[in-house]
Computed example of a mutant assay.
Amino acid sequence: MATDTAPTSATAPTEAAVRAALSRVNDPEIHRPITDLGMVKSVEIAADGVVSVGIYLTIQGCPMRETLTSSVSEAVRGVPGVADVHVELDVMSDEQRRELAASLRGGQAEREVPFAQPGSLTRVYAVASGKGGVGKSSVTVNLAAAMAADGLAVGVVDADIYGHSVPRMLGTDGRPTQVENMIMPPEAHGVRVISIGMFTPGNAPVVWRGPMLHRALQQFLADVYWGDLDVLLLDLPPGTGDIAISVAQLVPGAEILVVTTPQQAAAEVAERAGSIAVQTHQKIVGVVENMSGLPCPHCGEMVDVFGSGGGQQVAEGLTRATGAKVPVLGTIPIDVRLREGGDEGKPVVLTDPGSPAGAALRSVATSLSRRERGLAGMSLSLTPTRRG
């Protein structure tokens, strides 16, 4: 005897239920529900329980189309009564993209640097060093990955325009997606990242002067859609050049994290780099001493390959220069796994968090993460009243 397998009215999926499921699907680049972004074109439910969902992509050839299709299918299949799901992709019109961009900007016609606005609660750390080769980028990447692993929303700006290396160290070869004048940053290990290396062919060098460097940094901060970040890390080029000055102008509330090695010569240069905070009126959050020693493979004792005391020397010098206490946040030992992780795009704080370098970096990340999102500079909408 034949039976009718079509869903009954009690089990048939409803459009409201399907749209509720879609509201739990976030766009993989914008990190907001596709229903809020106007990306759901249509929902059609057949009598046999097959649901057809039309989805707008922001641009033709969207690199995340397969991820989005899979997420939509999985979410809708979880609705009771759904027998199968068909996802049909379309592309937003120019007008739809303009409306989306305006929505993401909060109705503003032009992008401003969100981290410089009075209401911003994002902690911004500019990771600086006096000279190259001290492991500043390795520290930046591992701090970002550790914070993201702890559940924070984290972004990294590879502001070392000439010596960009953050994409490799995070293991991403993704390209940013552009929606109107907004840039959607790729993500790796839960960290949103932007770098000039994502816009240059191969390993081509960048030959720019000051004004172009300033404009590039401004675009990275203002034109990239970062979303609501807890922490933004800027990997600065070594020294006290144009980018360091531009950071102070574009994000005056950024705090400086100085990276040095124990070597006295490196410490002296790092101290000069940190002292720029005196002129820019920025706060120095602390000092990280990298390559602080090599654990002996036989006895376990630390061998001071690059000397000792450089981090403490920098902290004391900056304390005198600024008049505020500058602490040493951590000392990172030499660890081959840290170097291997950078080459392979797998931060050591994720692959081997219990290693000497991994544990030290996670400790620094924790100390920075525990600092609450501040209200400094935020308008509290208070008005003075006269006591009677």
Rank of each mutant, 00 (worst) to 15 (best):
residue 143 L to S: 09
residue 205 P to I: 03
residue 110 E to Q: 12
residue 89 L to I: 13
residue 233 L to F: 13
residue 55 I to C: 10
residue 369 S to G: 13
residue 331 T to V: 05
residue 36 D to G: 02
residue 270 A to S: 14
residue 367 S to L: 09
residue 186 P to R: 05
residue 33 P to D: 07
residue 74 E to S: 14
residue 115 F to I: 11
residue 58 T to W: 08
residue 207 V to D: 14
residue 162 Y to I: 08
residue 194 I to E: 01
residue 386 R to I: 14
residue 208 W to Q: 04
residue 294 L to S: 08
residue 98 R to C: 00
residue 21 A to R: 07
residue 115 F to N: 14
residue 242 D to R: 11
residue 31 H to D: 07
residue 39 M to Q: 05
residue 110 E to A: 03
residue 90 D to T: 13
residue 293 G to P: 09
residue 94 D to K: 12
residue 149 A to G: 06
residue 43 V to M: 00
residue 329 L to Q: 07
residue 333 P to N: 06
residue 367 S to T: 15
residue 92 M to Y: 02
residue 188 A to M: 04
residue 266 A to V: 15
residue 334 I to R: 01
residue 337 R to T: 06
residue 136 K to E: 12
residue 141 V to H: 08
residue 140 T to A: 11
residue 305 V to C: 07
residue 306 F to I: 07
residue 77 R to D: 08
residue 379 S to N: 07
residue 156 V to N: 07
residue 6 A to K: 09
residue 301 E to A: 11
residue 46 A to V: 05
residue 380 L to N: 08
residue 232 L to N: 06
residue 296 C to D: 12
residue 198 M to R: 05
residue 174 G to R: 08
residue 281 H to Q: 15
residue 330 G to L: 03
residue 96 Q to V: 05
residue 378 M to T: 01
residue 264 Q to I: 02
residue 314 V to D: 07
